[in-house]
Design a binder for these strands. Structure first.
Lengths: 219, 219, 219, 219
DNA sequence: TATGAATGAGCTTTCATTCAT
DNA sequence: TATGAATGAAAGCTCATTCAT
């Protein structure tokens, strides 16, 4: 006899469209409260160790309520990551490209430091770094909607800088990641080592940009 | 026990707790096999989701045997992280400082890329990044024994470079992290996004060093 | 983004071959104790409402122990049904066919009443009747290994009886179920209505056989 | 609540508890729709596993609405069983007793096969068989209002048949169940085994009646 | 009367840890 | 030293029932 689920018990049927009144005023607020609480718990304990019980308590709802808004723990986690960063990417993409390049890239970096690194959104990125490998779909989403878009925007700026002669290192066009690397380093450092050796990420970033925009040797 | 009680459980030095004949030939081999298997499992699933059952099976021992060599899951995890990187730091610290600085720093970076980034040791670092916050003692150990020592060695090189005039950006002395940032970026990228956009970390690092050592404008 | 289980969490890997020392003396005893307790609980409350907690308590083991011997609740249930009846079918099939048919069939029926109907095995059949529809694999197993084999054995007897002229109703060859019908009726009745109107199933069965073997009108 | 507390909860007569406008046109229609939907769900999944959510959806009402018409899940279930068979018993009791007995009993059986076995009412009986033990009040109701009345009516017919000499097996008076046994067998068989070996219940029943009315040996 | 969001007790299942052998 | 059967605390998830609207 082959293994087989009890016939009448196939629960596939209900798509369990997370409803729970997401459209109503209160529904949306509750959903947001749950996501908010979940960010705290996931950031503090990691995906596997975070308890939905705690998320519920923190959000001020009953445990079952979470399931009115999210299919399961994983869906809650993915939604959390999905909704917190994308909006800011749009802002970054919309940044103007005219004016001195140095100022543009600096604004880009400052925006990132101020609006992400120093907010709870930093935890979202840390979560992606920590759990991304176990959630390939999430890693892919993050790559396409956040990383790629941000890097593409950056690349465009760099390209202009190179054409204008403001940036001498053409390799930056191929490796826009080099611009962001100190910020990622800062994200990690502040998360893990800041209590041993505080790091002024903004200052480090300025030093970094000084290098990028360093006037080259006159030929 | 199911709940992990990582935070604050600083097990600073483990007074050589239960050691299953670490001194005997076979004992040491078994211990190593367990650590090895544990690295695979922890890297693949994360600390909380890795099962000691799987570690045991992979190491070819019985589940109970793990407890002859390690106090508990957390001790196994911390030991794992403790033993895998420190030896390489010594090698890095021992690197010679004479000769052209560019070559020295490049050797430093190449060593890191070849001996860490492209080996299973990269997973150890990824584990520290992912779980470090939940294991303060581990983060502290990693900072003191790996990060700080590597950065200090690097800083010494940079200092020399600045004094000799080979490095123009003096800020690098204050932020030696800037040198390593692309490597960390590479570590993360290869772990998460390589399948979408492969990144040649060594090439990126070379481009990065080109910037660091860029001769400034002659006054 | 498509739904997708966390990568490292694919639990498919372990076939979870129920081991738990089933081969050892004690292992087999424990397994039997669990099956025994499960029969009581499933019979009393039905599959869905039976609690593994109660099964464990009744079997004198911890809850987790059940999972050393059975994959999950359903596997326990199916195993229970699988192991309790088949052995008796062999006995029935082995019944001799020589001698007066009436005696043979009566022995067949008596065996069934005594060894099944009046024992806890009756509950196994009641469970199949009650839950079979929701466990198609189980229904199929029960049909092939119990019902079909028993009816085939019966049919052979009837065939002989018809050939010898001891049974006048040839339709019985086509509907051997008619022989068993009162026994099934008795099984149901004793399970549900006996407290309102006790039914002497053995006597009823004898009356039934009187009809089956009734000598026809002499022409 | 998750635990069902069926046994002993004899809710003998329900003092017309919460009735959601059963008298109004729409109220009665809604109540009927709920009962109808409930039959489907209970038949498919069993009492414990059926979800009121699904019943509500199938009935086209909100979940809470069910509670306007029925006290709780159990009351809905019992009401369902109570209302579906009793009306047909009246029809059976009213069947005329004059004319050849064979025709009378055959009509009785045919009515049962056609009006119960081949309709959704068969599922109601299957539900009683499957769940009756856990709902003593229900079993008792079913016994008094269905089983006993049907058997009494049958017994009366048999009595007449015996007196008229149309039925030779006087034991049938004591065991009217023997007449119905093949129908119960058919009910079970069609529910569980029909896909493996289709059973023509009507034909089987005719063969059965042939035996019952078999003219005995002339003395 | 009708709704459906919200609740929370209760269930199955997992797995780190122990301990008799 | 080594084993692996046994344990039992936890945690994710479900669903009957309630109640504000």
């Amino acid at each position: 006899m082959t293994t087989q689920k009890p016939a009448g018990t196939s629960r596939t049927r209900r798509p369990r469209a997370p409803e729970g009144g997401e459209r109503t005023e209160k529904g949306a607020a509750r959903r947001a409260a749950i996501l908010d609480a979940a960010l705290d718990e996931f950031a503090a304990r990691g995906f596997a160790s975070a308890r939905l019980d705690d998320v519920a308590r923190r959000a001020g709802v009953a445990k079952g309520t979470i399931y009115l808004y999210f299919k399961d723990k994983q869906a809650l986690f993915e939604e959390l990551v999905r909704t917190n960063l994308v909006p800011h990417i749009a802002a970054i993409e919309a940044m103007p490209t005219e004016g001195p390049l140095r100022a543009r890239v600096e604004a880009f970096a400052e925006h990132f430091v101020r609006e992400v690194l120093m907010t709870r959104r930093a935890d979202v990125i840390r979560l992606v770094l920590a759990e991304g490998r176990r959630f390939p779909a999430l890693a892919e989403f993050h790559y396409r909607e956040v990383v790629q878009r941000a890097l593409t925007a950056l690349q465009r700026l760099i390209q202009i800088g190179v054409e204008r002669g403001e940036i001498r290192h053409e390799a930056l066009v191929r490796f826009p990641q080099l611009v962001m690397a100190p910020i990622m380093m800062g994200l990690i450092w502040t998360g893990l080592f800041n209590r041993f050796a505080p790091l002024d990420v903004a200052a480090m970033m300025r030093a970094h940009l000084d290098m990028l925009f360093a006037p080259g040797r006159e030929p």
